[in-house]
Nucleic acid binder design. Structure first.
Lengths: 226, 226
DNA sequence: TACTGCATAATTGTATACAATTATACGATT
DNA sequence: AATCGTATAATTGTATACAATTATGCAGTA
């Protein structure tokens, strides 16, 4: 797949409609139990029902809405507990990815990981929040690619996307930045040493720490209790 | 939600068209790289392009096909390695579910689990393959419900569905039946004793054992190598 | 032969029309 | 007043029409 394809894909109507509704659910614009009407959403986005319906089917598969046949689509949303569960699940899977990466990472991926950490240390010291966020995302993407499993990569990307939205709700703060980079470094070094156990536990802890940081920054207040 | 809703739900939540195409991919009728044409599949199933397109969007989200805009839908399929990866991922998540179940299982769920194992022992001794299969599926469903996490349950059901298809490809054999029941019993007892660690490791091992049994029964021969 | 350019066909993307189902309003009946 | 039944409206499910894009075949040319 060349670059043009990727761009086309990303901005195609299909993707756009799906992404928009998904974002609105994860951002809390549509709330738990809200009924989504095909025509209303279509008009809002300037499209017909067809692309909206296709998006609905995807959202249902993802568990964000529930479609009752011949009745309608109802937002399932996510609660504070869901977010916690996702982080716990992700902690395990991220550990598995780190473990597998010790066997499967390529030299090129290893290099990009080291470069990523080097840059993170720089921008962290400067307090560049936007760059830090970008580098953090990229670190995890590299890890997912490096695990050598299409299935695990696919799964982790899905959870990571959840997290990107959730994080918007909590305050971004750069104190976590240096801690996070330090943890990335530990994961990277364990992978470099091919120490599977160490890589796994470091990745486990990293995600749990990220979650606990979010809780301290008002996650509970941003999501419904149940 | 009454019974009728559940039934309706079961057959349309993931529509008929989606299920059929998915099955055909997982059963190997469509092979890696095959191009799926909306009209052809629609005619085969006696529907128009609209439901087929909706199914395609879902299958793409699941990673079973890849849609290139304005070109077509191409089967991604699953390889022997994918199956292995899924089992390893599922092993971890099933362990997590068992761990969480020690805290969240209801008396009713515990009872059904015990009943399930009792029946499994009976049908195993009689060599009733169909009942064994049904009871095995149900055991895992109970475990997923009992973990008390919508997110984890959703995820495990998805993986479990994969497995249902995959298992068809390997010979079902009843020697595994008694072993499997024994393992279920260990998981159940650990949950009953609220021994989280024991429950987790027992569930981990159970899934790994199930995978190894599948390998012994010709999994590799049933799927493409890469 | 190999390659280019154009016309045609095939396929997907989107909008719309119609059918099936469900929700709602309102009058009749008790 | 409350309830039931029916007519109407609203909404979803599916099919089809048309537009946009891509694939294909073929004549012409070097």
């Amino acid at each position: 797949m060349n670059v043009k394809d990727e761009v086309t894909d990303k901005y195609s109507l299909r993707g756009r409609v799906y992404s928009k509704i998904r974002e609105d659910i994860l951002d809390g614009r549509y709330r738990n139990g809200d009924e989504l009407r095909e025509i209303a959403i279509g008009e809002e986005l300037g499209v017909s029902r067809t692309p909206v319906r296709e998006a609905f089917r995807q959202l249902e598969l993802e568990g964000l809405i529930r479609i009752v046949p011949n009745k309608g689509a109802y937002v399932t949303g996510i609660t504070a507990k869901d977010v916690k569960d996702i982080y716990m699940i992700r902690s395990m899977l991220e550990g598995l990815a780190a473990k597998w990466a010790t066997e499967n990472i390529t030299d090129e991926q290893m290099n990009e990981m080291e470069e990523n950490i080097c840059l993170s240390e720089f921008h962290s010291s400067k307090g560049h929040a936007a760059q830090m966020s970008e580098l953090d995302n990229r670190f995890h993407e590299i890890l997912y690619e490096a695990c050598g499993s299409k299935m695990l990569e696919h799964q982790l990307i899905e959870y990571h996307e959840y997290v990107l939205r959730v994080r918007r709700k909590t305050l971004s703060q750069n104190k976590r930045g240096s801690e996070s980079t330090e943890e990335h470094k530990m994961i990277m070094e364990a992978i470099k040493q091919k120490d599977a156990k160490k890589a796994e536990s470091a990745a486990n802890r990293h995600i749990v720490n990220a979650y606990e940081n979010m809780v301290r920054n008002g996650l509970k207040e941003a999501y419904p209790e149940n």
